[in-house]
Nucleic acid binder design. Structure first.
Lengths: 149, 149
DNA sequence: AGGAGATAGTTGAATTGTCAACTAATTTCG
DNA sequence: CGAAATTAGTTGACAATTCAACTATCTCCT
């Protein structure tokens, strides 16, 4: 058994992109954009900064994705009146109308991946993945040069 | 608990890249290159096609990574005499001399991620990730338009 | 033998995400 | 109050990866 988190996660990430780009092409959204959409289905009206934190993604990537989703009619933005630096991002009616179909495609992917694997083991995998992500959120593994303090 | 393989794997993949790019900068290699190096530590003399299959990565990405690693002195290539299309890729002596240090950095990352998580759960996570990758290797989830066959 | 199709590798275009630099607005606090 | 630091967002440069098109070589048939 291969014990490299890096390799396994790399394969899953890249194939996930390829699969979802195809599966979601009918919805005119990409694998990277769907992460923003699902976050906003859960809670919209939040700003880009919070969205970036939620997804653990660079704010530049968020800016680009939201701009694209706005063009495609999935989200709209309004300036926050009490903090005019911030955009509030909302899911459009159109996006809501596509929700069920999009989740169906996401579900198919997870079902395919976890097919024939015991449910309790899958559960444990989710738990461990979540805890590893929590470690990342809490604080990065510090990297020092050997001769710096 | 978040049950999206996509989101979790995405965070782990991207942070892994950022961390390793820093941690391995002393070795003049990147996070993506180190995957090729470790595969070649395990078995070198193989061609790019097999390397691509082993890492589940596009052959174009392999070509570019190997070219870069060759420039950096980590690998060298010789034409396979019995199949002159194919390159045989070998780890250099220099690469071997860096092996221990590189694995140390990789180990620090895994240790950080799995810190304070029960060993048997980590084991189960590896098992499930491996089986999911096997599903990918066996065959892609087919995608059809609803009105095709 | 020799042509059709398969295989190994390379190259260039497009996409995604990071970082750094920047603008604009807000908060802090001397 | 008002300058300095912080925060939200944007933009442009760069790296990694995929796909498609291409070359070269090899294998399989008849």
């Amino acid at each position: 058994m291969n014990k490299s988190v890096g390799r396994l996660v790399s394969v899953l990430y890249r194939k996930n992109q390829v699969y979802l780009d195809i599966a979601l092409s009918a919805y005119n959204i990409t694998a990277s954009e769907v992460a923003f959409i699902t976050a906003l289905y859960r809670k919209d009206g939040i700003n880009q900064e919070l969205l970036s934190q939620t997804l653990n993604i660079d704010k530049a990537a968020t800016a680009k994705a939201i701009k694209s989703l706005e063009t495609k009619g999935y989200v709209y933005r309004t300036k926050n009146a009490s903090d005019r630096r911030a955009n509030m991002i909302f899911i459009s009616e159109y996006a809501r109308s596509q929700k069920r179909g999009i989740y169906k495609e996401l579900g198919k992917w997870t079902d395919f991946l976890t097919r024939d694997i015991e449910a309790d083991k899958v559960e444990t995998m989710f738990e461990v993945l979540n805890r590893m992500v929590e470690h990342l959120e809490k604080g990065f593994l510090p990297v020092w040069d050997d001769d710096e303090i």
